[in-house]
Amino acid sequence: MSEQQPYEPKIVAFLCKWCSSAGSDLAGVSRIQYPANATPITVPCTGAVSPMYILSAFNKGADGVLVSGCHIGDCHYLEGNYLARRKMYLIMKLLDFIGVEHDRFRMSWVSAAEGAKFAQVVTDFVNDLQPLGPQDKLKRAESK
C-alpha cells in the first residue's frame, strides 16, 4: 500500500426494521454526514437478534457490533426489546468476562424519528473503536 491508510473500524449494525433502520434512513434523507463504517443488517426486532449473530459477526472479522432498536414501550411486537435487553446484557457480560474490550459491543435505542441520534450513535461508536485497533480475539484466522 502506498501510504498507510488510517485504520477504519468495521462495524456490523443489527437495526430493527421498525425504528432504528427507519432512523438510519431518516439520517440519510436528511443528508446528515456521519461515518460510513457501519454495515446495516435489518432485523424484524432486536428481540430476534440471537447472541450467535454477534459472535458470528466478530468471528467473521467485525471490529464492533451495534444492536439498535425501538425504545422500551415502542416495540412493534410489544415485548421484543424487553427480551433483547436481557439477552444483549448477557452476551455483553460474557464478552467482557473472556476479555473482549467492552467498547466493541454496543446497544442503543433509536426511534424512526431520531435520524440525528442514529448518526451520533454511529459516530461515537467509530470514535470509541478507533483506539482499540482491529479486533483479532474472536476473528477467524485467514490463511495458514
Binding site: M52, L55, S56, N59, L94, K137, L138, K139
Partner: peptide, 12 residues
C-alpha cells in the same frame, strides 16, 4: 476462533 464461538454459544 471456532472454539470460542462454540463454547460461548453454549454458555448463552
Amino acid at each position: 476462533s471456532e472454539n470460542i464461538t462454540y463454547l460461548m454459544t453454549r454458555a448463552m
